[in-house]
Every structure is written in structure tokens, then in C-alpha cells.
Design a protein around this nucleic acid. Structure first.
Length: 281
DNA sequence: CTTTACGCCTGACGGC
DNA sequence: TGCCGTCAGGCGTAAA
């Protein structure tokens, strides 16, 4: 197998969440909720027992995304959905057979149902009647990777004096959102930065490269999601498992596609990290 | 303040 | 073949 054609990871990172948003929103926006059923409320936090009463009859406005949270704007509040480690959303018809772990279903008029499937139940379904940006879970999030605020100077200034690994730094949602374990390894590889290097010892120029690569790689993955065959209307809407070119993630022992040295794996901040010790310093 | 460890959960996988 | 231990991982939270 060539070095740069990898299998996919099974975790919804930001590109998968964005792809889910783009797949689901045109099917549901503007429709009114006709029924809500919660088959298993035991997610990361309990699904609000009042969810059917809260959502019933309301019209869905826009579907937005902040970090990896999906925000369904209704007339009287916002449904906050997080896919956790194994969550996926599908839009189906009411007759569509349930799959295992289809925990929450929101039926809309017009015959479409939004189903949340989440085997590991690390996901979230919450309701807020306040602006979701002020919700405790979202209030302290850093900039989006595509926002201008996510810049080299921002990373440089914020990281001064920090001794923790740069990989942990860019995975910290208070620094920047949406950089999960896979894309952290990948973007650091592209930027030539060793993942364990203290964040405070990365130069402005290298943070410029890193910010660029984070945007590039997330953008590529979103593009890939848009072009990958995925159908949110039928049963094959498993999100997030589209192929993406992973150059180091999951490839310990394989040859670096740049210098052919064997790639390494090391646990940094309780997470598997993949890198090339020759290319990344 | 920064940094680190933990636990939530199930499916996949390896060893015996 | 089948059982069982281990691992994976986002991310909030507690603790250092």
C-alpha cells in the first residue's frame, strides 16, 4: 500500500461533524417537529426528559456548528448535539427499521426523521433556551480553525511560557477547537514539529506553518467528506468514516513518506501520537 | 493559572 | 471456537 493512502478513523472529528451538518441541514431546515422519542436517555449527560415537550411543534431554523457541537436553532431555543466518539446522525423515514443504538429520534412534518445513533453513548443531546454560545460547554471555546483569530501570532503569544507538549496545546479546545487526535498528529507532521516539543518553544514561523497546515488538513477532510458518497436519507449515512490521506496516524513502523525512516508512536497526554523523529523536531 | 489523570462506554482485537 | 482482558478515544471534571 502506498504511504499516503490510509484507512479511515472511526471518530467524528471536526470535518465529519461539518459534513454531517451539511448533509442534514438541507433536509430538515424549515420543517416543524411532529414527534420526539428518546429510546435511551443515557448519553454522556442524560437527554432532558422534557425534550419531547420542549421540541414539539417547533420549527427548525438553521443548523449551525461550533467546534464539534451541532446547533439546531429552533424558535424557542437551540438543540445542542455532540457526536462524542461514535455518534452519527441520519435522516430517515418513520418506517425505516431502527438500528441498534438509535437512541434519539426527532420526527419532522413532511415525513423525515432525524435519528441519533451512538453505540458508546459519549454523545450529548441538550436543550438551551439561551444563546448556545453562552452555554457552559461552549462559552470558553477557542477560535474556529478557519477564523482569522486562529493565527500564528495568536498561537505564539498564547503558548509563551507553556511547558506542555505542543500536541496537547493544539488539542486544547480553549486554544483552538476541532483539532482532534488524528489531525493533531497529521498537522504536526506536515509542519515538521515534534509533537512532544514544549508549546512555548515553538517559533512564530513554525506556528504560522502549523496554523496553515491545520486549516489545510481540516479543509481537505471537509472537501473529502463533501465528495465521498454519503447519503443521509438512507441507511448508509454512517458519518465520518470517509477516507482521508493520513500520512502518519496509525502508521507506526511504516516508512515515513518523506524520508523513509520508520514512523513512531508514543503516548503524549494519554493519547497515541504518531510522528517521524527525523522530519519532526 | 497550567498541567495531569481519570472515567464515561462499547466494539474490535489478540491471546490462550 | 469462545471467552476475556485490553485498548481506543472526546472531553468535561477533579485534582495536583
Amino acid at each position: 500500500m502506498p504511504c499516503c493512502s490510509a484507512g479511515a478513523a472511526a471518530v467524528p472529528e471536526l470535518p465529519e461533524v461539518e459534513t454531517t451538518r451539511r448533509g442534514v441541514s438541507p433536509l430538515l431546515e424549515g420543517r416543524r417537529v411532529s414527534a420526539v422519542s428518546v429510546r435511551d436517555a443515557r448519553l454522556r449527560r442524560p437527554v432532558p426528559p422534557a425534550l419531547p415537550a420542549l421540541l414539539g411543534g417547533q420549527r427548525l431554523g438553521r443548523v449551525r456548528r461550533r467546534a464539534k457541537y451541532l446547533l439546531f436553532d429552533f424558535e424557542r431555543g437551540t438543540l445542542i448535539v455532540h457526536l462524542g466518539m461514535s455518534g452519527s446522525l441520519r435522516v430517515v423515514t418513520p418506517e425505516t427499521p431502527l438500528l441498534p443504538h438509535d437512541h434519539v429520534e426527532i420526527a419532522f412534518d413532511g415525513g423525515r426523521c432525524l435519528r441519533l445513533r451512538d453505540p458508546r453513548r459519549f454523545g450529548l443531546v441538550l436543550w438551551t433556551d439561551a444563546p448556545p454560545e453562552s452555554h457552559a460547554l461552549l462559552a470558553h471555546l477557542g477560535p474556529e480553525p478557519f477564523a482569522e483569530a486562529f493565527s500564528a501570532s495568536y498561537l505564539y503569544a498564547l503558548s509563551r511560557g507553556r511547558r506542555g507538549a505542543v500536541k496537547n496545546f493544539i488539542m486544547d479546545a480553549r486554544v483552538v477547537v476541532g483539532v482532534g487526535n488524528i489531525y493533531a498528529s497529521e498537522s504536526l507532521f506536515r509542519a515538521g514539529i515534534h509533537p512532544a516539543r514544549p508549546a512555548g518553544r515553538v517559533s512564530l514561523a513554525r506556528y504560522a506553518a502549523l496554523a496553515g497546515h491545520v486549516r489545510e488538513i481540516l479543509g481537505e477532510a471537509i472537501e473529502a467528506g463533501g465528495t465521498t458518497l454519503r447519503d443521509f436519507v438512507r441507511n448508509d449515512g454512517e458519518p465520518g468514516y470517509f477516507r482521508h490521506n493520513l500520512k502518519v496516524y496509525g502508521r507506526a513502523g511504516e516508512a515515513c513518506c518523506n524520508c523513509h525512516a520508520p514512523l513512531r508512536m508514543r503516548v503524549i497526554g494519554q493519547r497515541s501520537s504518531f510522528f517521524c523523529a527525523a522530519c519532526q523536531r
